[in-house]
Structure formats: C-alpha cells, structure tokens
Design a protein around this nucleic acid. Structure first.
Lengths: 160, 160
DNA sequence: GCTGAAATTCTGGAGTG
DNA sequence: CACTCCAGAATTTCAGC
C-alpha cells in the first residue's frame, strides 16, 4: 500500500478496537502530536482505508430479538445483482453484506424484531432477485463471541 | 427492555452508523444536553447495550488481502466448544465469531495476509476442535457492500 | 509533523422540576 | 431521578513554520 507507513497501520489497528479513542490518546500511543494524528486520519479516510465508525450494539436493546445469517446461492453473475444487493444494504435491518466465492455467492447478516420480520425480508429478497436466486440458506445467530473486532466479554459482559 | 426509552434507542441507532459523533451533536439530534447524553451512554455501556466502538477499516491497508468466511460443522455441543472459540476470538486475525443454528454451528470471519495464513489458521482450528469438528466450509469474501452498519460507498464519518 | 492559540467539546458538581 | 446549567479541564482544530 503506497503512502501508508507503520504508524498509519498502528492507528488503524487501534481504531478498530477502540473507535472512540481521542486523538490525544492515539497520539500518545503512536508517538505523534494530536494534530499529526488528525492529519493522518483525514488522509486515511480520504484514501478509503477507514470506511466509517460504528458502535457495537446488543440488538435486543433495539427490540431486535432475531439475528440471522443468510447465505444466497445465485444462478448467474452480473452487475445487476450487485445493484440489487446495494438496495438491500440500505435497509435498516441489514448489518453486513458480502459477496463470496464458494457454494453460495452472497452473505447477509441482518436483525429483526421477530420471525415475521425475517420472513418478510426473505420474501423481498426472493422477489427482488427473481430468477437469479437459486435458494437461500439461513441460520439464527444465537450467540456473539466477537463482532467488528469487539470481544463479547471485554466490556459489559452481559450474555456470557 | 427495562429502563430503556426511545431516546436511548435513538442514541444507539445513531451511534451504530456514526460511532465518533460528539456528545454535543448527539444531544442536538435527540434534544438532550451533552451531559445527559453522557449519562445515558454510561448507562448503556454499563447495561451492555453498547459492547464497544470500532472503525470499519479496509483490510488491504493492513496488508490483509484475504478475507474469509468460515462455516464450522460441529459434532457435539458442550461448554468446551465455546471456550475454544473464545480463545480464537482473541486472535488478531478474527473479526467476528457467531454461534448459529442450522447445518453449521459456528461462523468465523477473519482476515489474512495470504492463503498460507488462512491455511495455518484453519489448521489451528482443526487441531483445537479435534473430534468436535466435522468439517469446515470456507469462502473468500471478495467484496464488502456493507459492514458493521457502514455502507461501502458512504462516508459514515463524524458529521455525515 | 510540530507548535501554540482559539474554538469546541467534555466533565463533574450544584441546582431545579 | 433525570435533566439542565455552568465553570474548569481536556480535546479538537487551524494557522504558520
């Protein structure tokens, strides 16, 4: 990666685990002034190294009691599939969407209030993808040991 | 959820998409003083509603060019499996670990510098789980449309 | 990338309904 | 009890070097 040095990488590694750390503390860790850290952060965001920042939230507190992993087996490839999936990425229920190799070609992680919400979402998925979709495999996620680089027990340790 | 009102939920929803938003701006959005928002945040962290904060980083900038989804088919259930998986949750390469229902019983998302790193990790996984593991299915993640509530094309940064 | 000063934000305690 | 207000502390921000 051009224009990226070890201090940038260290900043990225720290920020992944402590997203709300202050520039001052970050500078202390990597031996840089807060202003320099800020300059580097702006550079990293501009370059796309940092896509955004997020809080890791227990969905139950948002009344989302069903967390689901969908595996999508798609029939054909094409740019239209990515466009359809991008629409679903905008949904409030969707946490993550990946394109993958292997037996299935797309993964969606999403959260719902109940099974009805999940079924409605799956229906929309089937309708939107139409003939491109061969089948959906889904699993309920009933325990989260780590998510977005944040370990379960490391903070509020509630469901351990 | 007891002791959680609509303003708490709104705070959680905003924080998921803008993890580095200031207390002042957050207070502006939900019509509360910064001090009140701070009190609520401390409550939410204490309750375990917020597990932590994270930056969504493009792994290529950390020289991790291989992102992988592992699906683990396990033979038996037991507390030892969760203990083993917890050890793997501490690995620097591991982004997320879920326990699921369905054909496979655990999901691991991880990043590696190359295929050798991936293979070494899979070996360790097999060795650690031993007889409990029936097989591993893995897929390369070659595109990320959304991750941790941050959409690919969007700037989910501080102000948005 | 640093400094230094100004603007902004954060923080804890006192006060109010 | 949760909220606001307020003052001091810390952080962020931006200019200039």
């Amino acid at each position: 990666m051009p224009g990226i040095d070890e201090k940038d990488r260290e900043i990225l590694r720290i920020l992944r685990k402590e997203g709300r750390i202050t520039l001052t503390e970050l500078g202390r860790r990597v031996n840089l002034s807060p202003a320099s850290v800020k300059n580097r952060l702006e550079k990293l965001e501009k370059l796309g190294a940092i896509k955004g920042y997020s809080a890791v939230v227990d969905p139950a507190f948002l009344d989302k009691y069903v967390k689901v992993l969908f595996l999508l087996k798609l029939r054909v490839e094409g740019p239209d599939i990515d466009l359809i999936l991008q629409k679903f990425a905008a949904y409030e229920n969707v946490e993550s969407i990946f394109r993958t190799s292997g037996r299935t070609q797309a993964v969606i992680i999403a959260e719902f209030e109940d099974m009805d919400g999940m079924k409605a979402f799956a229906s929309r998925l089937r309708r939107a993808l139409g003939n491109s979709l061969e089948y959906i495999e889904w699993s309920a996620i009933y325990d989260v040991l780590k998510e977005c680089w944040v370990e379960a027990g490391k903070r509020g340790g509630r469901w351990t």
